[in-house]
Design a protein around this nucleic acid. Sequence first.
DNA 1: CTGTTAGCGCGTTCAA
DNA 2: TTGAACGCGCTAACAG
Lengths: 335, 335
Amino acid sequence: MRKTTLKQLAHELQLSTSTISRALSDNYQISQKTKERVKHYAIERRYTVNRYAKSLREGNTKTIGVVICAMDKPFMAQVLNGVYDGCNEAGYQFLVMQSKGSFTAEKECVERLLHNGIDGLLISPSFNSFDLGYLVEQQAKGLPIVLFDRISRQIKTHQVAVDNFLGAQTSAKYLLDKGMKRVLVIGCLEEVWLSRERVEGFLSTMDLLTANEHECEVVNVDPTHREQLAQQLEKVFVKRLKSRPQFDAIFATTDTFTTTTIRCLNKLQINIPLIGFCNSELSDILIGNPTRIVQPAYQVGMAAVGQLLQLIKHPAQTDFETIYLPTKLEEGNTI
Amino acid sequence: MRKTTLKQLAHELQLSTSTISRALSDNYQISQKTKERVKHYAIERRYTVNRYAKSLREGNTKTIGVVICAMDKPFMAQVLNGVYDGCNEAGYQFLVMQSKGSFTAEKECVERLLHNGIDGLLISPSFNSFDLGYLVEQQAKGLPIVLFDRISRQIKTHQVAVDNFLGAQTSAKYLLDKGMKRVLVIGCLEEVWLSRERVEGFLSTMDLLTANEHECEVVNVDPTHREQLAQQLEKVFVKRLKSRPQFDAIFATTDTFTTTTIRCLNKLQINIPLIGFCNSELSDILIGNPTRIVQPAYQVGMAAVGQLLQLIKHPAQTDFETIYLPTKLEEGNTI
DNA sequence: CTGTTAGCGCGTTCAA
DNA sequence: TTGAACGCGCTAACAG
C-alpha cells in the first residue's frame, strides 16, 4: 500500500530527488533526455505526488470547504454537482459540511473546515444566520470566501445568487396572462432574503400590471419545522380556500413551501392552480402538476467555484462582483 | 491566515515542541501542571494541529473516499448524508467522486482518490462494472474497501446492501392481499443485481402464494439513457395496457423505473395501480400516489462507514460480513 | 518528567 | 545541467 516516493525513483534511477522533482514538473533546467527518462520511469512505477507532503511544503491544500444546510435537498444536491465539476476541472477537491439550518452548527462547520485546512470557503448561510461577522473576521485573516444562494451585504466579496426578484416577476406575469390576479402568496416569517425578494418581486409586477387592482394576500409562515409548517398551511388553506374560493391561484416562494402546499391541498381535497419554486427532478410528476420556477442550481455551484478560485488566485482582489443567474419557468398543465 | 504552530507555542512557553505535542495529546509522561498550562495556552492562541503535517508524519489521512454514480439522485444524496454523520462521529472526512455510470470513469475515480490519499474506500459500483478486478487488486495492495448498494461476490470484503429480495417479496404479498395477481414487472436488461433480485423476489412470492396461477409478465428495459427509457416504456405501455387492460398493477423495480413509469402513464392517460421503489422526499405527492418501497438510504451510508472504519482499524480482518437492511413499504391511496 | 534528534515526502535555495 | 541541504509541522525514539 506504501506509495512510490521521489526518493525511491531517485535511488532507482541513480539521480537526486531534486532532479526527479524538477524533471516531473518540467523545470527548464533539466535536459530533455533526463526529463523523458524520469517521466517514463515514473509512470512505470506508478508514481504520484504525495498531496500531504506537497501541501505541507507549499502551504496550500488544493481543497475548498463548502457549507450548506443539507445535501439531501434536491437544490443543494444539484449545486454540489456543479461544485464538483468546477473543482475537478481545476484540480481541486472539496469538503462538505452541513449546518442543518443551525447558526451555531454553521459556525462550527467553518471552524472545522479551517482546522482541517482549506484554501477557500463556499457558503450558503442558514436562514438563521443574521450576523455574518464571524465570516468577515475570517476574511480579514485572509480566508477567501464566496457566498452563494443566500447572499448578504454584510460581507464584501464575490457572491452568486439566483435572480429571485425577476423569477417572481415572471411568475406574476404568467399568472396575469392567464387572467389570474387574486393570488395567495406563501411567504416567510423570518427575514429570509430569498423568500422576501420573491414576495416583493411578485407584488411589484402585480402592482404595475394591474394598477393595484390585484387582490393578492401574503401569508407568512415559519419554515423551521416541517410538520409545523404543514399545520400552519393547512390552517391557512382551510380558512382562506375551503369555504369561499376567493383566490385564483397560489404562489409558493420556496421549494419546501411548494411541496408542502401540494401535500396540504391534496389532503384537504382542495383544487386550485399552483405556481412555485421547485427544483426536484420529479417536479413534473407532482400531484396537480403545478407550474414550476426552476433555479439553475448546477450553474450556481459552477459559478461559485469559479469566483472562489479566482479569489484564491488573486487574494488582494477588492473589486467584487455579484452574479445573478436567471430562473426558468416550466409550465404545468393546470394553469 | 498563518495558523499557530507547535513551534510557536513551544517558543512562547519556553518548552520544547515535543513537550507541547505530548501535553496536547494527554501523554502520561507529562505532569498535570504542564499539561494544563499548555492546553490552556493552546486554546488561547487558537492552536489546532496541521492535519497535513500530522498525516504526513503518521502515514494516514483520516479521509475516506466515496465513489457513487451521481450525488444528485435522492437515494445517493441520502446515503451521503449517512456517510457524513458516520464520518463526523469518528473524526474522519470524506471525498466524493462521481462515476456517472461509466466503468472507465469509475476506475479513474478510484485512481484519483488513491492519488489523493485515502485510508479506505466506500464504493457503489456502477451498473456497468462487471469486472471488479481493479478493486481486488487495490485491496491486495492494502486498501480497505467496503461495497454498498450494488454489492458483488467478486470481492471478499464487508458489504452493505438493501434487502432487495425481501422488499420485492413484500411488494408481491401486498398486491396479492389486494387481489392483484396480474402484474407487469419492469425489470432491467443488464445483469444488474439490484433489479434482478427484485424481479426474482417478486416472482418467488407470486409463485408461492398463487401456486403459479399468477399472470405476471416481466419486461426488461435498458436504463442507460433517460429519454430512451421513456420511449421504451411508452411502447410497452401502449402495447400491453392501452388496448386491453390485462394487468392489475405495475411493479417498478428501480427508482428511475418508478418515476419514468409515472411520467409515461400520465402522458398516455393510462390509469393503473403502481408499486415501485422510490426514495424521493416527494414520493408521497407523485401523480397517481403510487405505493412505494423505500430503501433505508441513510442507514446504508452509516453502516458502510462503520464497516469501513472497522476495516481500517483491523486491516488483517478476514472474517467479512454482508449487512442487509430492510426496506419499508409506504402505502399510496390507489392500491 | 522533559529535551534532542530524526524523518515523514516534497520543492527550493545555494553550490558546483 | 545536476546534487546537497534545508525546512514545511508534526510525532516518536532515544536520552537524560
